[in-house]
Amino acid sequence: MVTNLSILVLAGFVGYAVISKVPNTLHTPLMSGTNAIHGIVVLGGIIILVQGAAPGFLNKLLLVIAVVFGTINVVGGFLVTDRMLEMFKGGRGRGQADVEAGPSEDGPKA
């Protein structure tokens, strides 16, 4: 448990450090991307099912719904993020393909 708590705290700092500064245009795609990542809760449902724990119809029904929900979160989340970013990339390609590095504030709104 102490190990898990340490991982929890360290992961929190990693999350903070990774997202130190984000250009405004990327706020929505980033929100969508992190949204897809927490779809990892689908693992929770799969773990309990795979271990054969929680017998009984209602338990299994709830777990299958949880897996459905988690899968929608993962699949939908990553696809939607990809679509947002594709639009972003297309806009850059037309107008500002030669902007080299650094956050650009003038890209099309995603």
């Binding site: 929190g12 990693v14 999350g15 706020h27 992190t34 929770g44």
Partner: peptide, 22 residues
């Protein structure tokens, strides 16, 4: 933490922290 699953802890917490900052 409840299910003792590292992947869930790390991925969830990264989203929790980065989401707050975002």
């Amino acid at each position: 933490v409840a299910l003792n699953n590292t992947a869930l802890i790390v991925a969830g917490m990264i989203v929790g922290a980065s989401g707050t900052l975002l």
